[in-house]
Design a protein around this nucleic acid. Structure first.
Lengths: 198, 198
DNA sequence: TGAGTCAATTGATCTATGTCAAGCAAATTT
DNA sequence: AAATTTGCTTGACATAGATCAATTGACTCA
């Protein structure tokens, strides 16, 4: 299972991590299996782990004052999932994280992360690259959320993450985009009809 | 001018950077003065610089297909402002960055950034901490944008960035929140009236 | 295998916010 | 100092998307 992480680090850094360096990382992560519908984080708890998704899918969501769910993040293979604010600042989290499928994860703690980034330059480099990528994707997401119509949001999702449509219920994709399931359904139908009209 | 950056690095890392380390950073940044309404980046150009704001204010915005401006970021003293995607991946930017006030900036390039992060551990550490903070604030912003009503968005801005209300035109604050200026004006009036009613 | 749950669609209606226009005061430019 | 521009507010009206409800088919569980 740790081999997947090793491969991931090599791919991201376009390098090959040495055995004696990877051993620090290996020690800092432990495997966890989750069944569908199990929680990794409950709202109100302090987040203890950062998770690397080896296999499966999770979602990170909050519930607003009106009882509506808002999915901020899906975690699929090759993704990292945590509430960084809670993990690093020890604040009660406003998020829940649960498994949408049976999952294989590698978990690490805040302390282990610190240690690993001190001991492994390649891990630090990977972390830095991922932060850049995340920053870019966050910026795109904010820009889309400010300026797109509902239809543009659905189209954008179809383009960026086509596999999401096979993998997650439409009500969850709607939530991820900040739309109602009915609106999502109507727009998707309209877009599929348009495409056939070409 | 570089002293402000030095102080900033020390504050963020809760340390004191050595002279012989800071000299690398100093060499990698050059000062730039901008007048109000001048551009740092035009849409369609490849972004060449990351800017640290020593004094003044800028905004980063895109213009959608309907001709509407959408402000994704304000850069005030102590902020960094760039289009990371364009800078790092050499893509034409979809953003504009211009000065809302006369500004003093320190600019660096992609190459200099690489060099500095190799030569200065403290700069790398600062960069890492800032990325964590940005990640956290992006997540909050996405969550707010998905789940808040217009009124909640205005309230949240009043709480998080009260100084923005003195410093930026309301039409820009509205744009930053994804609201029309009219809606913003009505909601602000309502909230101010509510507050007086307490 | 049947009952219950989940997912999705569709129609009707509602509402939060956008759009358009007008007016006014402050700020900026000439 | 006068003209112009910018910023903001307000009223009237329009609309994109939400809400509610009903229905149907697929999936899950006992």
């Amino acid at each position: 299972m740790h081999d997947v992480l090793r491969k991931f680090i090599n791919e991201i850094t376009t390098g090959i991590i040495a055995d004696d360096e990877f051993v620090h990382i290996e020690k800092g992560f432990f495997p966890k299996l989750m069944k569908r519908r199990q929680f990794l984080l409950h709202e109100g708890a302090v987040c203890k782990y950062m998770a690397f998704v080896v296999k499966g899918a999770l979602r990170q969501y909050s519930i607003d004052e009106r009882g509506n769910e808002h999915i901020v993040h899906f975690g699929i293979e090759g993704c990292w999932i945590t509430d960084r604010e809670s993990l690093l600042m020890l604040r009660p989290s406003k998020y829940n994280i649960d498994a949408l499928e049976d999952c294989e994860l590698l978990l690490t703690t805040k302390e282990q992360l610190s240690l690993i980034t001190d001991l492994s330059l390649q891990f630090l480099k990977m972390s830095h690259i991922l932060d850049s990528q995340h920053s870019i994707s966050f910026q795109n997401r904010i820009q889309a959320s400010l300026s797109y119509t509902a239809e543009e949001k659905v189209m954008d999702l179809m383009i960026r993450y086509p596999s999401f449509f096979n993998r997650f219920p439409q009500s969850m994709l709607a939530s991820y985009l900040g739309l109602s399931p009915e609106t999502f359904s109507r727009i998707r139908k309209k877009l599929l009809t348009k495409q056939y009209a070409f």
